[in-house]
Amino acid sequence: IKNTPWYLVSTFNYNQYLKERFIFIIFNILISIIASVTIGYYLMKKVSIITSPIDDFIKESTSIIPIQSQSKSDNIDINHHFNNIINTSKDGVYCSRTNLLNRKYFIQNANIKIQTHHKKFALLFIDLDNLKTINDTLGHHYGDYVISIFAQHITTFFNHPIDLAGRFGGDEFIVLTNNFNNEIDLIDKLQKLIIELNGSVSNASTVIPFSASIGVALTDNEIRDIEQLIINADKAVYDSKKKGKNCYTFYINH
């Protein structure tokens, strides 16, 4: 009001004022939320760049050294896992000649797979025939070559993600697989494997054939221990040898 400190405020003007203030407050809240989300996303990306190599390393390393601890604390799981990785680096994981898991880490991984996946597994104990003859006749470098080729064929043949292959020692290899629908399907695969592992090595004057004798042990409700499966499959290998080699035999519990 002119010449006074008072303002004349109508109901309409007051409501308009409140509406403008409300819109202003809502607008500022939206701006704050958008800014917070943007900053959070930016920081998350930065953290992800730093941590992703570690996450990838843990993910890849679990295929070799599975996290076995079932502790409620994730920190204990990770610490336990990294301690296993450090110990692994000391004694090695893979056979240097074949790039297959060595006996220790095959058994460790295979046992976890059997206990984790409640499906039927087949343990194949594969014995390379005639390696001693090759070493004695042509030399150990020929024998090493055959072992390397043999391992490549096994790796190629058993390429399903859950398949596990290892070198048990010398001329012996082990494979754990559940990549079969039934025993008929498994027999078909074994027949193809026998053909796949047939070959020969020669120098200028001598040709020596090599092949595989295979023992097969299947898991059941009673036997889900990898060491027992290996023992059973190893017994079946001897039956394959008695049959004349270059064949497979299933272990039968008498």
Rank of each mutant, 00 (worst) to 15 (best):
T4E: 06
S10G: 11
S10W: 12
F12T: 10
N13Q: 12
Y14E: 06
Y14S: 04
E20Q: 12
I25Y: 14
F27P: 01
N28H: 10
N28L: 14
I29G: 04
I29E: 13
T38W: 15
T38C: 14
G40W: 09
Y41H: 13
Y41W: 15
Y42Q: 10
M44K: 12
K46R: 13
F57I: 07
I58L: 14
S63C: 07
I65Y: 06
I65K: 02
S69E: 06
K72C: 11
I76Q: 06
H81G: 05
T88K: 10
S89K: 11
K90S: 10
D91F: 05
Y94W: 07
C95M: 10
T98P: 04
N102C: 15
R103I: 08
Y105K: 06
I107D: 03
Q108P: 04
Q108W: 08
A110Q: 07
N111R: 13
N111F: 12
K113M: 12
K113I: 08
K119C: 07
K119S: 08
D127K: 06
N130K: 06
K132M: 04
I134V: 08
L138F: 09
H140R: 11
Y142D: 03
Y142A: 08
D144L: 09
Y145V: 02
V146M: 03
Q152W: 00
T155R: 13
F157S: 01
H160V: 03
L164S: 05
F173W: 08
I174N: 00
V175N: 00
T177V: 10
N178Q: 13
N178S: 12
F180V: 01
N182P: 00
E183P: 04
K189G: 01
I195A: 08
S202E: 11
S205H: 15
S205G: 06
P209M: 10
S213G: 05
T219I: 03
R224S: 05
R224H: 08
D225N: 13
A236W: 01
V237W: 00
Y238S: 03
S240Q: 04
K242T: 12
K243R: 11
K243W: 02
G244C: 10
K245P: 14
K245Q: 14
N246T: 07
C247M: 09
C247S: 15
Y248K: 03
H254E: 15
H254F: 06
